[in-house]
Simulated assay, not measured.
Amino acid sequence: MLTQSENSQFQTVPSESRIPLRVKNLKKRFGRLDVLKGISMTAQSGDVISILGSSGSGKSTFLRCLNLLEEPTDGEIWIAGRHVKARGRLGSPREVNALRAKLGMVFQHFNLWSCKTVLENIIEAPIHVLGIAKQEACLRAEELLLKVGLADKRHDYPAHLSGGQQQRAAIARALAMEPEILLFDEPTSALDPELVGEVLKVIRSLADEGRTMLIVTHELAFARQVSNHVVFFHQGQVEEEGHPDELFRRPTSPRFKQFLSAQIGEGCP
C-alpha cells in the first residue's frame, strides 16, 4: 500500500472503489488558453465511452490529464477509489506511477520502443513497474499476442510491422499491465484505411469482454456500434452526451448536428 504524506494529493476513497473512473470539473489551461473548461464524467465497470469532437476540442488533452501526462489545472479525479485533487503538487513519482498503472494508454502513433522486439516491448513495464518475473511476463505476453493476432510477430521489431500491427502490439502492451481502464487516443487516425478494420476488431473484442474503455475516435460508425455512451466535446466542454442510438438519431446541439453533417459529408455513416 502506498504511504501518504501530508502534502500528497492522492487519497483512497473506499466508497468510490467500485467505480473505475469519475471526473469532476476537470480543467486544463496552457498559458492564457483554456483547453478544458470543466469536464465531468463517470465510467462504470464495463462502460465503453466514445469521445467525439473536432480537432482542438480538448479530447486528447482530457485523456492525458487522466493519466497525468499533463498536469490538470483544477478539478478532481477518482480512479478505482484513488482520489486525485488536481490542484497543486500531485504527489510523488511513486504515487503517480501507481495511478498510471491502473490506466492502459494506447496512443495515436503507437509509441513502441524501436530498439526492442514486440515481445520485449510488452514485458518491459510488467517486469520493471509491477515486479513480475520475466518468465511469467513472457507467458502473459504470448497470450496477449495471440489475442491481438500477432503471435507470429513476437520477435520482430516495430519497423518491420505495418501500422495496424504496431497498433495491435501497442494494445497488447497496454493490456499487459492489467489496467482498470483502457484509454485510446485516436487509435486508427495514423493508419492507412485498409488497416483500420484490424485494429477496430481488436478493440471491439475487448468491449465484448466487458473492459472499461474511453475511446477518442473519429470513427462514428464504430463509436455507435461499440459504445454504450458517447460524449461530444466542443471548445473544452461537454456539448452533448448520451446513448449512441439516441444521440445520433436525435441530436439536440446545433454544433453536434453540424459536426455529424460534416462527417457524413466526408463519407462517415
Rank of each mutant, 00 (worst) to 15 (best):
G197M: 02
E120N: 00
P187E: 15
W113P: 01
V23Q: 14
E219L: 01
R89V: 05
S114L: 02
V48N: 00
A125G: 09
P244I: 15
G210K: 07
Q4T: 13
F110E: 00
V226P: 00
G56D: 09
H218W: 04
L103A: 09
P179T: 11
D152L: 02
L247A: 12
T61Q: 08
K59P: 08
A151V: 12
T117N: 00
G58Y: 12
W78Q: 04
P20W: 12
A101Q: 13
L150Q: 10
G58N: 10
G88V: 05
F62S: 04
A169K: 00
G265P: 06
A151F: 07
S40D: 13
F107N: 02
Q235P: 02
E186C: 05
A176I: 14
G163C: 12
I77W: 05
S253P: 11
W78V: 09
M1L: 09
L21A: 12
L103W: 12
G81N: 08
Q108F: 01
F107R: 01
E16N: 00
N7P: 01
L146C: 03
T252D: 14
L144T: 02
S40M: 11
R173S: 09
G38K: 01
A133Q: 15
I127A: 03
R22H: 15
P72R: 02
A101H: 08
E124M: 04
L2N: 11
A262G: 08
T212M: 07
G210S: 11
A43L: 06
L36E: 14
S50E: 11
K28R: 13
T3A: 12
T12R: 07
F107T: 06
S40H: 05
F222M: 06
I123H: 01
R154K: 13
D192Y: 10
E143P: 00
P14D: 05
C138P: 00
S205L: 03
R224D: 11
L2I: 14
E95G: 05
G164H: 07
G58W: 13
S15Y: 01
S15I: 07
Q235F: 03
Q263Y: 15
V129N: 04
G56A: 10
L21K: 04
L26A: 09
P20R: 07
S54G: 10
F259W: 05
A125K: 03
M41N: 03
L150S: 06
R211C: 09
V196F: 07
L33F: 11
C65Y: 03
S253K: 10
E241Q: 14
E136R: 11
L150C: 08
G210L: 11
E209G: 09
H234N: 14
N97K: 11
V231A: 13
V148I: 06
R224K: 10
I39H: 08
A223K: 00
G210Y: 12
H229E: 13
E95T: 14
S227T: 11
I203E: 02
I77P: 04
Q166E: 10
Q165N: 06
N97D: 15
S227D: 07
N97Q: 14
E6K: 08
S45R: 08
E16C: 00
F233K: 01
V13D: 11
Q135E: 15
G197D: 15
L68I: 10
A141K: 03
A98Q: 10
D245W: 05
S50W: 06
L182F: 07
